[in-house]
Computed example of a mutant assay.
Amino acid sequence: MLTGKHLVFVGGDRRQLEVIAQITDNDASATLIGFSDLGRTFADTTFAEPSDAIFAQADALVLPVAGMDDDGRVETSFAPHPVELKESHFQAMRPGTFVFTGIAHRALTEWCDRYSLRLVKLMELDEVAILNSIPTAEGAIAIAMQETDITLHGAKTVVLGFGRCGQTLAHKLHAMGAVVHVCASDPRDLARIHERSLVPVSLRHIEHAVHDADIVFNTIPAMVLPAAVLKRMRRDAVIIDIASKPGGTDFRYAERRGIKAILTPSLPGLVAPRTAGRIIAASITRMLADDEEAEFEEEELWI
Protein backbone atom coordinates (compact mmCIF):
# COMPACT_ATOMS: atom_id res chain seq x y z
CA MET A 1 0.00 0.00 0.00
CA LEU A 2 1.05 3.58 -0.63
CA THR A 3 -0.90 5.27 2.13
CA GLY A 4 0.31 8.83 2.67
CA LYS A 5 2.29 9.00 -0.58
CA HIS A 6 1.63 11.82 -3.02
CA LEU A 7 2.56 11.43 -6.68
CA VAL A 8 2.63 14.02 -9.45
CA PHE A 9 1.76 12.70 -12.92
CA VAL A 10 2.72 14.73 -15.98
CA GLY A 11 1.28 13.94 -19.41
CA GLY A 12 1.28 10.60 -21.18
CA ASP A 13 -1.11 8.34 -23.04
CA ARG A 14 -3.64 5.68 -22.06
CA ARG A 15 -0.96 3.71 -20.21
CA GLN A 16 -0.64 6.57 -17.76
CA LEU A 17 -4.34 6.35 -16.91
CA GLU A 18 -3.95 2.76 -15.77
CA VAL A 19 -0.89 3.72 -13.71
CA ILE A 20 -2.92 6.46 -12.00
CA ALA A 21 -5.79 4.04 -11.36
CA GLN A 22 -3.51 1.42 -9.82
CA ILE A 23 -1.53 3.90 -7.74
CA THR A 24 -4.62 5.58 -6.28
CA ASP A 25 -6.18 2.16 -5.67
CA ASN A 26 -3.16 1.54 -3.44
CA ASP A 27 -4.25 4.54 -1.33
CA ALA A 28 -1.86 7.17 -2.72
CA SER A 29 -3.02 10.66 -3.67
CA ALA A 30 -2.08 12.32 -6.94
CA THR A 31 -1.85 15.62 -8.79
CA LEU A 32 -2.45 15.38 -12.53
CA ILE A 33 -0.75 17.86 -14.87
CA GLY A 34 -1.62 17.83 -18.56
CA PHE A 35 -4.98 16.11 -18.17
CA SER A 36 -7.38 19.00 -18.78
CA ASP A 37 -9.34 17.07 -21.43
CA LEU A 38 -9.39 13.78 -19.58
CA GLY A 39 -13.14 13.57 -18.92
CA ARG A 40 -12.85 11.20 -15.95
CA THR A 41 -11.77 11.36 -12.32
CA PHE A 42 -9.82 9.18 -9.91
CA ALA A 43 -10.01 8.89 -6.14
CA ASP A 44 -8.09 11.54 -4.21
CA THR A 45 -6.68 13.34 -7.25
CA THR A 46 -6.53 16.98 -8.28
CA PHE A 47 -5.87 18.65 -11.63
CA ALA A 48 -3.30 21.42 -11.80
CA GLU A 49 -0.86 23.42 -13.88
CA PRO A 50 2.87 22.96 -13.20
CA SER A 51 4.27 25.06 -10.37
CA ASP A 52 7.20 24.85 -7.99
CA ALA A 53 4.84 24.43 -5.03
CA ILE A 54 3.21 21.33 -6.53
CA PHE A 55 6.52 19.63 -7.23
CA ALA A 56 7.79 20.47 -3.75
CA GLN A 57 5.00 18.31 -2.28
CA ALA A 58 5.74 15.24 -4.43
CA ASP A 59 7.01 11.95 -3.09
CA ALA A 60 7.45 10.91 -6.72
CA LEU A 61 7.13 12.39 -10.18
CA VAL A 62 5.78 10.08 -12.90
CA LEU A 63 6.55 11.03 -16.49
CA PRO A 64 5.31 9.16 -19.57
CA VAL A 65 7.23 6.33 -21.20
CA ALA A 66 8.57 8.83 -23.76
CA GLY A 67 9.89 11.01 -20.94
CA MET A 68 10.68 14.70 -21.28
CA ASP A 69 12.30 16.37 -24.28
CA ASP A 70 15.48 18.37 -23.75
CA ASP A 71 13.45 21.58 -24.01
CA GLY A 72 11.30 20.48 -21.04
CA ARG A 73 8.32 19.47 -23.14
CA VAL A 74 6.20 16.48 -22.13
CA GLU A 75 3.69 15.15 -24.64
CA THR A 76 0.17 14.37 -23.49
CA SER A 77 -2.87 12.81 -25.11
CA PHE A 78 -5.22 14.53 -22.66
CA ALA A 79 -4.59 18.24 -23.21
CA PRO A 80 -4.47 20.49 -26.29
CA HIS A 81 -0.78 21.33 -25.80
CA PRO A 82 2.31 19.62 -24.35
CA VAL A 83 3.27 20.36 -20.75
CA GLU A 84 6.27 22.63 -20.35
CA LEU A 85 8.49 21.75 -17.39
CA LYS A 86 11.24 24.01 -16.07
CA GLU A 87 14.42 23.31 -14.17
CA SER A 88 12.93 25.13 -11.17
CA HIS A 89 10.28 22.41 -10.88
CA PHE A 90 12.99 19.81 -10.33
CA GLN A 91 14.92 22.11 -8.03
CA ALA A 92 11.80 22.44 -5.87
CA MET A 93 11.59 18.69 -5.21
CA ARG A 94 13.14 17.26 -2.06
CA PRO A 95 16.48 15.49 -2.57
CA GLY A 96 15.88 11.75 -2.91
CA THR A 97 12.47 12.16 -4.56
CA PHE A 98 11.77 9.49 -7.17
CA VAL A 99 11.44 10.54 -10.82
CA PHE A 100 9.96 7.73 -12.89
CA THR A 101 10.20 7.79 -16.68
CA GLY A 102 10.33 5.28 -19.50
CA ILE A 103 13.43 6.77 -21.09
CA ALA A 104 15.55 9.75 -20.06
CA HIS A 105 17.05 12.35 -22.38
CA ARG A 106 19.98 14.61 -21.50
CA ALA A 107 18.14 17.45 -19.71
CA LEU A 108 16.13 15.16 -17.46
CA THR A 109 19.23 13.20 -16.51
CA GLU A 110 21.20 16.37 -15.77
CA TRP A 111 18.46 17.99 -13.69
CA CYS A 112 17.88 14.86 -11.61
CA ASP A 113 21.62 14.54 -10.98
CA ARG A 114 21.98 18.24 -10.15
CA TYR A 115 19.23 18.16 -7.51
CA SER A 116 19.90 14.66 -6.13
CA LEU A 117 16.67 13.15 -7.41
CA ARG A 118 16.36 9.39 -7.87
CA LEU A 119 15.85 8.89 -11.59
CA VAL A 120 14.34 5.52 -12.54
CA LYS A 121 14.33 4.59 -16.24
CA LEU A 122 11.58 2.00 -16.22
CA MET A 123 12.20 0.66 -19.71
CA GLU A 124 15.71 -0.34 -18.65
CA LEU A 125 14.42 -2.52 -15.81
CA ASP A 126 14.08 -6.20 -16.68
CA GLU A 127 10.92 -6.50 -14.61
CA VAL A 128 9.27 -3.92 -16.85
CA ALA A 129 10.98 -4.48 -20.20
CA ILE A 130 10.52 -8.26 -20.28
CA LEU A 131 6.82 -8.06 -19.47
CA ASN A 132 6.45 -5.09 -21.81
CA SER A 133 7.87 -7.23 -24.63
CA ILE A 134 4.69 -9.34 -24.60
CA PRO A 135 2.28 -6.63 -25.84
CA THR A 136 5.07 -5.38 -28.12
CA ALA A 137 5.38 -8.79 -29.77
CA GLU A 138 1.63 -9.29 -29.99
CA GLY A 139 1.21 -5.87 -31.58
CA ALA A 140 3.98 -6.50 -34.12
CA ILE A 141 2.44 -9.83 -35.07
CA ALA A 142 -1.01 -8.24 -35.42
CA ILE A 143 0.44 -5.64 -37.81
CA ALA A 144 2.19 -8.38 -39.79
CA MET A 145 -1.12 -10.21 -40.20
CA GLN A 146 -2.84 -7.03 -41.35
CA GLU A 147 -0.15 -5.96 -43.81
CA THR A 148 0.44 -9.29 -45.58
CA ASP A 149 -1.70 -11.64 -47.63
CA ILE A 150 -0.03 -14.82 -46.38
CA THR A 151 -0.19 -16.80 -43.18
CA LEU A 152 2.55 -16.52 -40.62
CA HIS A 153 2.58 -20.30 -40.52
CA GLY A 154 5.27 -21.30 -43.00
CA ALA A 155 6.35 -17.72 -43.71
CA LYS A 156 10.03 -16.85 -43.66
CA THR A 157 10.38 -14.28 -40.91
CA VAL A 158 13.54 -12.54 -39.77
CA VAL A 159 13.94 -10.97 -36.33
CA LEU A 160 16.79 -8.49 -36.05
CA GLY A 161 18.13 -8.44 -32.51
CA PHE A 162 17.81 -10.89 -29.63
CA GLY A 163 17.18 -8.61 -26.70
CA ARG A 164 14.07 -8.64 -24.56
CA CYS A 165 11.67 -7.85 -27.41
CA GLY A 166 13.55 -9.94 -29.97
CA GLN A 167 13.44 -13.05 -27.79
CA THR A 168 9.73 -12.77 -27.06
CA LEU A 169 8.87 -12.01 -30.68
CA ALA A 170 10.94 -14.89 -32.04
CA HIS A 171 9.39 -17.29 -29.53
CA LYS A 172 5.82 -16.31 -30.45
CA LEU A 173 6.49 -16.44 -34.20
CA HIS A 174 8.00 -19.90 -33.83
CA ALA A 175 4.97 -21.05 -31.84
CA MET A 176 2.72 -19.89 -34.70
CA GLY A 177 4.60 -22.04 -37.21
CA ALA A 178 6.72 -19.37 -38.86
CA VAL A 179 10.22 -20.15 -40.08
CA VAL A 180 12.20 -17.81 -37.83
CA HIS A 181 15.69 -16.52 -38.59
CA VAL A 182 17.24 -14.35 -35.88
CA CYS A 183 20.16 -11.98 -36.50
CA ALA A 184 22.44 -11.21 -33.57
CA SER A 185 26.07 -10.24 -33.05
CA ASP A 186 26.92 -11.90 -29.73
CA PRO A 187 28.07 -15.54 -30.11
CA ARG A 188 26.23 -16.39 -26.88
CA ASP A 189 22.98 -15.13 -28.39
CA LEU A 190 23.60 -17.10 -31.57
CA ALA A 191 24.08 -20.24 -29.48
CA ARG A 192 20.87 -19.57 -27.57
CA ILE A 193 18.99 -18.97 -30.82
CA HIS A 194 20.15 -22.37 -32.06
CA GLU A 195 19.17 -23.98 -28.74
CA ARG A 196 15.62 -22.69 -29.22
CA SER A 197 15.33 -24.36 -32.63
CA LEU A 198 15.50 -21.04 -34.46
CA VAL A 199 17.87 -20.20 -37.31
CA PRO A 200 20.85 -18.13 -36.07
CA VAL A 201 22.46 -15.62 -38.42
CA SER A 202 25.36 -13.34 -37.59
CA LEU A 203 24.39 -9.69 -37.93
CA ARG A 204 27.39 -9.32 -40.24
CA HIS A 205 25.51 -11.48 -42.73
CA ILE A 206 22.15 -9.76 -42.40
CA GLU A 207 21.71 -9.47 -46.18
CA HIS A 208 21.76 -13.29 -46.49
CA ALA A 209 18.93 -13.57 -43.95
CA VAL A 210 16.63 -10.90 -45.37
CA HIS A 211 17.09 -11.30 -49.14
CA ASP A 212 14.20 -13.77 -49.49
CA ALA A 213 12.26 -12.93 -46.31
CA ASP A 214 8.50 -12.47 -46.28
CA ILE A 215 8.52 -10.33 -43.12
CA VAL A 216 11.38 -8.64 -41.29
CA PHE A 217 10.95 -7.44 -37.71
CA ASN A 218 13.59 -5.01 -36.48
CA THR A 219 14.18 -4.47 -32.76
CA ILE A 220 17.62 -2.83 -33.01
CA PRO A 221 17.74 0.99 -32.53
CA ALA A 222 20.48 1.48 -35.12
CA MET A 223 20.67 1.61 -38.92
CA VAL A 224 20.70 -2.11 -39.67
CA LEU A 225 18.56 -1.94 -42.82
CA PRO A 226 20.33 0.67 -44.99
CA ALA A 227 19.78 1.05 -48.73
CA ALA A 228 22.51 -1.47 -49.54
CA VAL A 229 20.65 -4.19 -47.61
CA LEU A 230 17.16 -3.15 -48.75
CA LYS A 231 18.30 -3.34 -52.37
CA ARG A 232 18.77 -7.10 -51.95
CA MET A 233 15.31 -7.66 -50.45
CA ARG A 234 12.19 -8.70 -52.30
CA ARG A 235 9.95 -5.82 -53.22
CA ASP A 236 6.90 -7.58 -51.74
CA ALA A 237 8.58 -8.04 -48.37
CA VAL A 238 7.19 -6.23 -45.32
CA ILE A 239 9.36 -4.58 -42.68
CA ILE A 240 7.94 -3.92 -39.23
CA ASP A 241 10.35 -1.76 -37.27
CA ILE A 242 9.57 -1.71 -33.55
CA ALA A 243 12.81 -0.02 -32.46
CA SER A 244 12.61 3.39 -30.83
CA LYS A 245 12.54 6.37 -33.17
CA PRO A 246 13.94 6.83 -35.78
CA GLY A 247 14.10 3.04 -36.06
CA GLY A 248 16.74 1.04 -37.90
CA THR A 249 15.44 1.22 -41.47
CA ASP A 250 16.17 3.57 -44.36
CA PHE A 251 12.49 4.37 -44.84
CA ARG A 252 13.17 6.76 -47.71
CA TYR A 253 14.87 4.10 -49.79
CA ALA A 254 12.34 1.44 -48.78
CA GLU A 255 9.56 3.62 -50.18
CA ARG A 256 11.55 4.28 -53.33
CA ARG A 257 12.07 0.56 -53.87
CA GLY A 258 8.42 -0.21 -53.14
CA ILE A 259 9.02 -2.15 -49.94
CA LYS A 260 6.37 -1.66 -47.29
CA ALA A 261 8.22 -0.51 -44.16
CA ILE A 262 6.32 0.47 -41.03
CA LEU A 263 7.77 2.19 -37.97
CA THR A 264 5.75 1.20 -34.91
CA PRO A 265 7.39 2.34 -31.65
CA SER A 266 5.45 2.29 -28.37
CA LEU A 267 3.27 -0.63 -29.44
CA PRO A 268 2.20 -1.51 -25.87
CA GLY A 269 0.55 1.90 -25.54
CA LEU A 270 -1.37 1.33 -28.75
CA VAL A 271 -2.44 -2.30 -28.55
CA ALA A 272 -2.60 -3.02 -24.81
CA PRO A 273 -2.44 0.19 -22.76
CA ARG A 274 -4.17 -1.34 -19.75
CA THR A 275 -1.71 -4.23 -19.52
CA ALA A 276 1.27 -1.94 -20.16
CA GLY A 277 0.05 0.50 -17.52
CA ARG A 278 -0.34 -2.25 -14.95
CA ILE A 279 3.22 -3.42 -15.58
CA ILE A 280 4.55 0.09 -14.97
CA ALA A 281 2.32 0.63 -11.92
CA ALA A 282 3.47 -2.61 -10.31
CA SER A 283 7.12 -1.56 -10.49
CA ILE A 284 6.46 1.96 -9.22
CA THR A 285 4.42 0.59 -6.33
CA ARG A 286 7.09 -1.95 -5.43
CA MET A 287 9.90 0.62 -5.40
CA LEU A 288 7.97 3.14 -3.35
CA ALA A 289 6.87 0.45 -0.88
CA ASP A 290 10.41 -0.94 -0.60
CA ASP A 291 11.73 2.56 0.03
CA GLU A 292 9.14 3.12 2.76
CA GLU A 293 10.10 -0.17 4.40
CA ALA A 294 13.81 0.68 4.22
CA GLU A 295 13.18 4.05 5.87
CA PHE A 296 11.15 2.38 8.61
CA GLU A 297 13.90 -0.15 9.30
CA GLU A 298 16.48 2.63 9.44
CA GLU A 299 14.37 4.53 11.97
CA GLU A 300 14.10 1.39 14.12
CA LEU A 301 17.88 1.13 14.25
CA TRP A 302 18.06 4.57 15.82
CA ILE A 303 15.39 3.92 18.44
Rank of each mutant, 00 (worst) to 15 (best):
F90S: 06
L7I: 13
A60V: 02
A48V: 04
S197E: 13
A170H: 06
E292M: 13
I280H: 00
P268L: 10
T97A: 13
Q16Y: 01
G248R: 07
I23P: 01
E195K: 13
A79P: 03
R15M: 07
R73P: 00
L131G: 02
L173W: 05
V216E: 04
I240R: 08
K121C: 13
T41P: 00
S88A: 14
R256E: 13
G161L: 09
I150T: 06
P187F: 04
M68Y: 03
R256F: 00
V62M: 07
F47G: 04
D126Y: 05
M68N: 07
G39P: 06
F35H: 03
A30M: 07
R232K: 15
Q167K: 15
L160F: 03
A137Q: 05
A254T: 02
P268H: 08
E255A: 15
D212V: 04
E147H: 12
T136H: 06
T24Q: 11
A222N: 11
S185F: 09
R235W: 00
H205Y: 14
T101G: 03
V159M: 09
V19P: 00
P268Q: 11
K156F: 03
A289M: 12
A43N: 11
D52M: 12
A282M: 07
T45V: 15
E295F: 01
H153S: 13
D52L: 07
E110H: 12
D186T: 10
I284Q: 03
I259W: 03
G154E: 08
V62N: 02
H6P: 07
I215V: 15
P95Y: 06
V19M: 10
M68F: 03
I262Y: 07
G34R: 02
T275V: 09
P221Q: 12
A175I: 05
A175Q: 14
A282T: 09
E293I: 08
R73Y: 00
A140I: 00
N218I: 01
N218K: 11
D149V: 12
M287Y: 10
A30N: 05
A48Q: 06
E299S: 12
A43Q: 12
